[in-house]
């Protein structure tokens, strides 16, 4: 592989992407105008991209097309409620923005309550309870018991309704041990994640741009 040719239609974009990548990396030395340029460019393009798809894939097919064909005319008042978002920028009537927010927030909160309770509490509780079936494989059974004890200890660490003494003290300390191992696992994986992001950029710079790797 060779370095991307900036005189070809594809190559010029590879160069643009590479220069922007280096502009952002220049922040590692210190903040500078190249980084600031890249940062501001990103915000602009990201918003332009979002506008494109909100228009072409939501407003046109769901609102303008049916209404222009005389269908779903009830969408007109709904669109007017949606348009109240504009009032956020008109101080005298900015309170009107509460109406579209109220509909979105109300539905979101109402829809999430029964479903989240089931998914994140009931199903999780079911998975924590140790039954005879947990010992179908004895090793898995032992792990299930450790998980059950770990969950109890962890929760007891966050139990602030009474003073931490007596039995609660050692139990909550075991909880701390579990929590620290859990946080350590998260940290180890966070390192992996961040390094991966950098590797991705280097794969682009060394591969697509410089042609040093395939």
């Amino acid at each position: 592989m060779n370095i991307a040719n900036p005189l070809t239609p594809e190559g010029i974009w590879v160069w643009v992407a590479a220069i922007l990548t280096m502009a952002v990396f220049s922040f590692l030395y210190r903040e500078n105008p190249f980084y600031r340029f890249a940062e501001h460019l990103f915000v602009g393009i990201a918003n332009g991209y979002a506008i494109t798809f909100y228009w072409h894939r939501i407003l046109v097919p769901y609102l303008f097309s049916p209404v222009s064909q005389g269908q779903k005319l009830y969408l007109i008042p709904i669109a007017m409620i949606g348009a109240l978002y504009f009032t956020r920028f008109i101080p005298k009537v900015s309170w009107l923005v509460r109406f579209p927010i109220a509909i979105a927030l109300g539905y979101g909160a109402g829809a999430s309550i029964p479903r989240s309770v089931d998914a994140t509490i009931i199903q999780q509780l079911k998975a924590t309870i140790v039954t005879r079936a947990s010992f179908a494989d004895w090793q898995q059974g032992v792990w299930a018991v450790i998980i059950l004890l770990g969950v109890i200890c962890t929760i007891s660490y966050f139990f602030f309704s009474s003073e931490r003494k007596g039995l609660l003290k050692p139990i909550s300390y075991v909880g701390v041990v579990f929590i620290m191992v859990g946080f350590g696992a998260s940290f180890g994986y966070t390192v992996m994640a961040r390094i991966s992001l950098f590797i991705g950029r280097l794969q682009f710079l060394l591969g697509d741009w410089l042609g040093l790797i395939r």
Partner: peptide, 22 residues
Amino acid sequence: VPNTAAKRGIGFGVSLGIFATS
């Protein structure tokens, strides 16, 4: 195993918090 136990314990607290806020 230990990570799951810790995250599940914390998760119960978070879920109950979200439920209460909703």
